[in-house]
Simulated scan of single mutants.
Amino acid sequence: MAARLSLTLRHPFLPASYPIPARATQFRRFAVQNCVSDSYDSRKLVLEVKEKLEREYNSLPLGRNGRDDEEMILWFLKDRKFSVDDAVAKLTKAINWRQEFGVDELSEDSVKGMAETGKAFVHEFLDVNGRPVLIVVAAKHLPAVHDPLEDEKLCVFYVEKALSKLPTGKEDILGIIDLRGFRTENADLRFLTFLFDVFYFYYPKRLGQVLFVEAPSVFRPLWQLTKPLLKSYASLARFCSIDTIRKEYFTEDTLPAIFKD
């Protein structure tokens, strides 16, 4: 973009009569035309998806996160490499899931009981890369005690909350799983798979990275079982220490309190 802009502006120290090289002029024209063309093609594909959804899936809801939400349509088109049919298939699944799961009905009150366990929260500050941060405290996750559906609702509520904090120009969030004190009773292959399924099917490309902090040896077998199921998403995972969190992801002022001691 900077290159394109530099070609559209004459250097302030050059006289008005100074000739702009023909090659630069051609490049500028090509870049502008390309930009307009890309924008036009994207808009055309969004409308194509929108019309296809209206024609073939008109029972799907309208409005935000519905079949006529053009921002959502464009995001799924990007995820599916601008294949209209693939985007429609994935969008249909995502919109149906939102409706069946009751995503829009989730609220602070509806997840209050599970939130009070302290097993997860959205950090008040962004990381150094400007991403919202979703933190999970694994030692407080007790699958034998907690209702799995309530766990899932809490997860989705916090994903929605984190995404609502995205600054302009940012597209993904950072997930941090604090594994200090993790024991076998905290292991939950089902929930870990659900978490990654949520990001793959319903919030594609919204998870920028997942940090596994201070992973004990007892966690490794669970990871080896889960990793093949995650496919390309496994590449988003990074095992790291608290020291790495402090030095690479936050400033002294924005560091989550649980990593300060």
Rank of each mutant, 00 (worst) to 15 (best):
L106W: 02
E160M: 10
E124W: 03
V111T: 13
P204G: 05
M114E: 13
I177G: 01
T184C: 03
E116A: 14
F121P: 00
L192S: 14
K153G: 05
C155T: 15
L154P: 09
S110R: 10
G130H: 09
I135E: 00
P167S: 02
V198E: 03
R183M: 08
L229I: 14
G113Y: 05
F199K: 06
L126E: 06
K161P: 00
T193W: 06
A94Y: 04
F121E: 13
L134M: 07
D127Q: 08
V218R: 06
I176N: 02
E116G: 01
D109N: 11
L189D: 04
S164E: 10
I173K: 02
R131G: 01
A187V: 02
Q209A: 14
L222G: 03
D178F: 05
R206C: 12
Y202G: 05
K161R: 14
E124C: 12
R183E: 15
T117F: 13
A215H: 07
I135G: 02
L163M: 11
Q224V: 09
P167F: 07
E100C: 02
R206M: 09
R220S: 11
T184H: 12
E185L: 11
L195Q: 13
T226E: 01
H146N: 15
L207M: 15
K119I: 03
W97N: 01
Y158C: 03
S110Q: 03
R183P: 00
Y203V: 03
V122M: 11
G169C: 04
A162L: 07
E214S: 15
P228H: 06
R183Q: 14
P216C: 07
K112P: 00
W223G: 10
R190N: 13
N96D: 06
F196H: 09
T193N: 12
P221W: 06
G130I: 02
G208S: 08
V128R: 12
A94E: 08
P167Q: 03
L174V: 08
E160R: 07
